[in-house]
Design a protein around this nucleic acid. Sequence first.
DNA 1: TCGAAGAGTGTGTAGACAGCATGTC
DNA 2: CTACACACTCTTCGA
Length: 706
Amino acid sequence: MMCINVDSLPINEKIKDILKKRGIQKLNPPQTEAVQKGLLDDKPLLIVSPTASGKTLMAELGMVSHLINKGGKAVYATPLRALTNEKYVTFKDWEQLGLKVAMTSGDYDTDDYWLKDYDIIVATYEKLDSLWRHNSPWIKEVDYFVLDEFHYMNDPERGPVVESVAVRAKRKGTILALSATIGNYKQIAEWLKADVVATNWRPVPLKEGVLYAGNKKKDFVVMYKDGTSRKVYGECPIVAFTLDVISKDGQVLVFRSSRKYAEATAVKISQFMNFVKLNDKKLHEVAESIKEVEDGGSNEKEALYNLILKGVAYHHAGLSKGLRDIIENAFRDRIIKVIVATPTLAAGVNLPARAVVIGDIHRFNRKVIGFTEYIPVMEYKQMSGRAGRPGFDEYGESVVVVRTKSEVDKVMQRYLNSDVEPLESKLGSESAFYSFILSIISSEEDVTERTLTEYIQDTLLPKELAKKYFKQALNWLLDNEFIAQEGEYLTLTKFGRRISDLYLNTFTAVTIKDVLTRNGKGCELAYFHMLAYTPDGPLVSITKAEEDVLLDELDCELFIEEPYDEYELSNYLSSLKVAFIMRDWIEEVDEDTILGRYGIGSGDLRAIVDTMDWLTYSGFHVASVLGLEEHKEVLEKLHMRVKDGVKEELIPLVKVPGIGRVRARLLYSHGIKTPEEIIMNPEKVKQLLGPKLGEKIVREAARAIT
DNA sequence: TCGAAGAGTGTGTAGACAGCATGTC
DNA sequence: CTACACACTCTTCGA
């Protein structure tokens, strides 16, 4: 195919200038095809192509030409906050055209109520869904929807939201869906009423293979899909292959199926890095910056410090955001040579490497006890697709570690030579379907059964199933008083409106409602446990040792009784562990102590606290809307203590920006107990916190009061 | 008598979205 | 609904 020159595109000269400034002279094949199929003329498209094949640029061209030719607004939806952030930064370029770009998600908040003034809005799928539910006036003006990483629709938990966003976007404007390769793209395109651009084009070719680890000698064989093979030598297959790539000045991304393996593999590789030439000065700088991270645990920092000096790091969700950022950036700058990661890095931000090692193809499934499954082909593609850095590598290389001879063919067949799973509707679960119905009723006007039927017909759910669920959903939502019927119209009750606005799972809502109405005031632990034991609660793993003692350590009565079912019991205990963690947290137990006591990472603690913050807030509002005054008071107080992890007496202090649990306690123990007292004793504050920080805090306190 | 290789046993197991209220130096 | 990988201990076997 002839690729189009930027110069000959039928677009505004300013757009061309921006492209050229980025060094783009020519569109690549998939981009060219997209343009030919009407990308610049507002045509709905489904683009199915590998990682790094330039989909983001297509989205930019689609959005910008729509905005320039037709006005309106464009939303770019992604499944991850980190991606939202990444795209936002990229799209900022277009402000040169006078377009305004914003982003919004749970934690990065450009600015919600100002969004009406923006042209391009980057948001997570959930946030977009939430904005619709809240009926933000500006959202009606959105008429161009980019649905990024659309294959997320196959995710059992997050997929339903992607699908429901697609259903609505289809009615309200033009869809540009971007996806990694999927099996049934024709069917999906038909459903989206979009034309298809499907390619396997990659900017850097990919060599896929298996790394056979069968023999116990020190040489291992890499067998490529194309029939060629080569040998690598070393301590074990992963080490041998990794060192081989690094010695040729490449970087390696190793994927492992658990955190423990990731850490162990990183340590093992680091033991052989003495033979590699490294930039010690830069590595030292990175290692030092690890020590200064504010949100990391001491043990994590210590472990990473030593690894990084050898050019290696591990990476998983147990690490705090600060630590992960440093590692990702140092790898991007080619200072760190190897990252051993769990699947965090497979789907996340853009972080390519010369070579990718896929250490395991099995993964434990915590939803079914004792069940291990093969990772989906989609996930294999996501991981292997990280191989090959445009501009640096001639080709990328990905290998799957295979431990037995019989598995060599199996892996070849199952992963290297296989199509990706088809996209299917995941709305066929009670919880997902009920939420979908609730969201339609909360965002549309004058909803009748007929309105809902039309929406449901627009989903990808098989007709029979949809019909069955529909009746069931209406009855359930009516019975549980989320919605009410007024003549032929369906409206939200006050309770239903609250739940929808809070973005709570309907089953979470019913659990909270039932527990609170049936019980009087309980202990802190009981509230935390109830909230954690809902579908929206955080999950933590429990060891055998913990399993035995958790119930013994219980010193007050819970709201919910111990279940008999084995699976439910493990959830029950997991929630109890969350409750204990939360109680320690708001009792100001030292962070390192909490991490050690419960065997979790700093990133885990942050995630648990965030979720519980939202849930205590939600619990407070549920109690409030139900008129349960006693519970409402307790939950309100808990919520205020959860965010910063403090006892009640510190609440006034942590409201000052820059003061967290540690600084607040320090000030309090020296007699400074409120923002007012900070202002009255500036010298003492400076003495306690240091001159620079002290001054800043005094200023913030003054602002906080007014 | 020692050590290597092999058999048996116990243990643990990925990630990450959502509210709200405010203007970041 | 179809486990695996690893660490660790115990057992066997040969020189």
